[in-house]
Simulated scan of single mutants.
Amino acid sequence: MISPALSTALATWLDHQRAIAGAAENTITAYQTDLLSFLSFMTQHNGGSQGLGPIARIDIRDMRAWMAHERARGVGARSLARSLSAVKSFYRWLAEREGFEPTAVLSTRAPKFQRKLPRPLAEGAATAMIDTVELQAREPWVAARDAAVVTLLYGCGLRISEALSLTGSDAPLPDVLRITGKGGKERIVPVIDAARDAVDAYLRLCPYPVETNAPLFKAIRSGPLRPRAIQKVMEQARLQLGLPATATPHAMRHSFATHLLTAGGDLRAIQELLGHASLSTTQAYTAVDTARLMDVYDKAHPKA
């Protein structure tokens, strides 16, 4: 059990992350879950209600005990590192607000983990995915809609949420789009002809009026199109193409970045196009490119 004062502090911090830091609702939910789990453990570990006083006295042994407990219940290194990051962020804010020393928490080292490499599609598979997605729907306008969304993912490197957040005011697509991504960060994305043509084809066939402030992409009954609809049609297409389960909407964005890099694109420019806050996130694509190169090398020069 945590005290009313600590509950209020946590709620205030979450509001701060939502309003000031621009964190998405899914991120806010993850923060809340991670911190409530942490505070629940400390309540049991130290005994008694966790208030602002006890929480300020947590030391490195308490932190190690929490991390050992999390690993023992099967929490992976990546998830634990994310939880620790949330705890540190909250503590940094709380310590400044309440005037205590947070060093014990902030100095806790995150567990090491192997960062997963993005899994892009080959160029031929990416274009085949767009063509095959268009064959899944019976209604021509739905087929055109699905193809337009997937073309935006691959041709412009958009996240599925970003593509579906486009409104009627974005049509017809301009030469560049102003996209608001994670954390409220804005970026400018060039629009290729194929994406503009695909959206134009959808708009010509769409049976519903496209209003300025309403979603550009419509569901069957005219409401906003949901990500699950695109995920589902891509699942059907990948089965027909014999592609792995990693051929998801996000894989199209990975493919956009990897193929740009392979063609000689500048890493900093790709970072800007993707809206990555850190260059280290974009650098994962260089590892993908190297892995692909080594695979080609191994096949060309088989070991005796």
Rank of each mutant, 00 (worst) to 15 (best):
V149E: 12
L153K: 03
T167G: 10
L173Y: 03
I130K: 09
E134D: 13
G168I: 02
L135N: 15
P140I: 10
L135V: 00
Y154S: 03
G155V: 10
A143D: 05
Y154H: 15
R138N: 15
E139Y: 14
I160T: 06
L166G: 00
I130L: 15
R138A: 15
R145P: 11
D131M: 13
T151C: 09
L173K: 00
L158T: 07
T127N: 07
A144R: 04
D146Y: 07
S161L: 12
R159E: 04
V133G: 02
A148M: 14
G168S: 06
A128L: 08
A171I: 05
S169V: 06
L152S: 09
I130C: 03
M129H: 02
G168T: 06
Q136M: 12
V133W: 00
Y154K: 15
S169I: 04
L135I: 00
A163V: 07
D170W: 13
Q136D: 01
R138W: 13
M129L: 12
A163N: 04
A144L: 06
A128M: 08
W141Q: 09
P172V: 02
R138G: 07
E134N: 09
T132V: 11
A144M: 09
L135S: 11
L166D: 01
T127E: 09
A163W: 12
W141A: 06
S169D: 06
G155W: 06
P140S: 13
G168M: 01
V150W: 10
E162M: 02
L164E: 04
L166F: 03
G155Q: 06
S161M: 10
T132G: 01
L152Q: 07
L164P: 08
V150M: 11
L164Y: 04
A163Q: 04
A128F: 10
E134L: 07
Y154P: 04
L158D: 01
A128I: 09
W141F: 11
R159W: 02
M129V: 05
G155M: 09
A128Q: 08
T132W: 04
A144H: 00
G168A: 12
Y154C: 10
G155A: 15
V133L: 01
I130D: 05
V150H: 05
L153G: 08
E134K: 10
A143G: 14
A128Y: 10
P140Q: 10
A163I: 07
R145I: 11
L135A: 11
A126W: 02
R145L: 13
G157Y: 09
P140G: 05
A143I: 09
A144W: 05
T132P: 00
A126I: 05
S165Y: 01
T127P: 11
I130M: 12
D170N: 10
A137F: 03
L166P: 03
L173T: 00
V149F: 11
R145E: 12
E162N: 01
E162F: 01
W141R: 09
L166V: 03
S161V: 11
S165C: 08
D170T: 13
